[in-house]
Structures are given as structure tokens and as C-alpha cells.
Computed example of a mutant assay.
Amino acid sequence: MNIDLTGRKAIVTGSTAGIGRATAEGLARAGASVVINGRSAERVNAVVQEMQLAFPGRDISGVVADLTTAEGAEALFAQAPDADILVNNVGNAYMRDYQGIEDIARIPDEDWLSLFQLNVMSGVRASRHYLPRMVARGWGRVVFVSSESAVNIPKELLDYGVTKTAQLAVSRGLAEAVAGSGVTVNAVLPGPTRSEALGSLMAQQAEAQGTTQEEAEQAFLKALRPTSLIQRFATPDEIANMIVYVSSDQASATTGAALRVDGGVVRYVA
């Protein structure tokens, strides 16, 4: 399969590292011009320079914007007013060791609200801006980077799981709203991935325990995701491969879907 995105402009939110960075590189490799986004000018500029060297001739630019706020979203729209492909990737989780209801009951309102603003409203605002322009042209791709935690709610990450479920609802609803327009809206559900955040946590645990990162990852899977069929963490590139595909012409009949790239963690057939 030859995916050719030449002439398409893609915006990938939260793309200075991890799945977002891998997705930006995958889209550029397929020929798209890419807008990098992050909150730090230093990191955004560094990634833009690295990608310009890696993909000479590609239009690689960057926008510094904090998408947890409406003002940050407007800053993105002002500098990148249009796109053919929107990947709503930016997100976060508060890593905790919460187990019982007493622990979960102590999650403060501030954590719930800040995660909702970043994980859900960033994608709502971006889609609200870019989708009508895609519909007017008769072509566009919107991809939400959700998580297997959206359907396999983790008690230790309850607030995170709720926001990821909300992303599925938003994605499906938007797909329904643009039916027949030539625009598709999908969600991708990664499983445990060696991303910047989770990968760094595993590296820290490995150092503290005097083990390797791979051993720390295996302990994580055994304790929290024993149903993994690949029995390892995915790489950001493996997740990006699915995102690049659903951003392409070849995926024109795929819309309104929740596409699992979870390594088989979720035990159901669908």
C-alpha cells in the first residue's frame, strides 16, 4: 500500500514527543506538510528543525500553544487557520497508585477539570474550527488519539479513563454530523505504549528497582494489563502507522470507528 499525502496539510497537537511526534513524522514521510504543536517554544523549535533536516523539501512548521485553554486554541487557529488532516493527540494522565474507593474519592476537582480541558476540550475546540472547512472542500480527516482505557477503565486512572471515553463519544458524534461529506472522523485506541510519559515512568521504576526497562514494562503488564496479546509495550511508530492510514485516501470507508491498537489488551470481539 502506497500512502501518498502530497498536497495535504496536517496538524498534530501535542507532537513534540511520543505518539504525536511519531505521527508527525509518519505524515511527513507520506508527503504531507505538518504543523508541530506544543507548549514549549524550545521543544517545538527543536522538533521542527529536526524534521526539516529529516524531510527536506517538506513544509514543516510549528505553533506554540497551550491547548488546555480556549485562548491557546485561538492562538493555534490564528497561526494555522486551515488543515486537511487534524490529529487530536495532545493529552495527559496523572499517574497514581490509587486502588480502593478511599483513594479514588480523593481525586480533587482540579484534576478532573484539568484533564477534561486538555484531553477532551482541546479536540472539541480544534474540531469545531477545522471540520467545517474540511466539509466545505469535500475532503478531510480527523483522528482522536484515545486509549484502550476508554473501554477498559482503570481504577488507578479513573479520571483519565473517563476523558478517553468522552473522546469516543465526541468522535462518533462528529462522524455522524459530517456523514456523506467526504470527511471522516475516527478514534484510535493505543494500549500500553513506550511513549514519553509512560516510557519515562518505566525507566524510573527500572532504575529504582535495579532492573531493565523491559523488565519494568513486563511487571506493569503482568500487574495491570495481563490480557496483552503482544505481551510487550507498543512503540509510538506502531500507533502512528494506524493514524497515518486513517488519514489517507485508502481509509475513505472508515469513519465513526474506534480502532484498537492495544495489542489485544481489551478482551472482546468488535
Rank of each mutant, 00 (worst) to 15 (best):
A216D: 05
S122K: 05
A17D: 09
D109H: 14
N89Q: 13
I3S: 03
Q49H: 08
V143Y: 00
I104L: 15
D262R: 03
W112Y: 08
A240P: 01
D82H: 12
L229F: 10
Q99E: 07
A223H: 07
A234M: 12
V34L: 14
G263D: 03
A105K: 10
P226F: 15
A251W: 01
E42K: 12
S252E: 04
G26E: 01
V48H: 08
R29E: 12
L259P: 02
L5C: 05
A70E: 13
S33N: 09
L158S: 13
N152T: 10
A208L: 02
E238Y: 09
G140H: 00
A75I: 15
G14S: 06
T211G: 00
D84E: 11
Y268S: 11
A17S: 11
S149C: 13
I36T: 08
V261A: 13
L53V: 09
M134N: 01
V261T: 09
Q117C: 05
V265T: 11
P108I: 04
R21A: 09
V47L: 11
Q167Y: 14
T255L: 02
A24V: 02
F233R: 07
G31H: 12
N119M: 07
L157K: 10
V35P: 01
A41Y: 10
I153V: 13
G173L: 09
P56E: 08
A10V: 06
E102F: 06
L259G: 01
L5V: 08
G140D: 00
V261L: 04
V145K: 01
A206M: 06
G210E: 05
E71R: 15
Q117L: 02
G20S: 01
W139F: 00
S171Q: 09
E156R: 14
Q209H: 03
L53T: 11
P236A: 15
F77T: 13
R58N: 10
S61V: 14
N241K: 15
I19M: 06
A24N: 02
R39F: 08
K222C: 03
A175C: 11
M121F: 05
V135Y: 07
Q49I: 05
P81L: 15
L27A: 07
R8E: 04
A75W: 01
E148Y: 04
I36E: 06
A253Q: 08
S248R: 07
T193P: 01
S122Y: 03
K155R: 13
S114R: 14
V87L: 12
D237G: 14
S248V: 03
W112V: 07
A32S: 11
S114F: 04
S15V: 05
V269L: 12
Q231L: 08
S33G: 15
L86P: 01
I60L: 08
A187I: 04
V178Y: 13
K9L: 14
E50V: 02
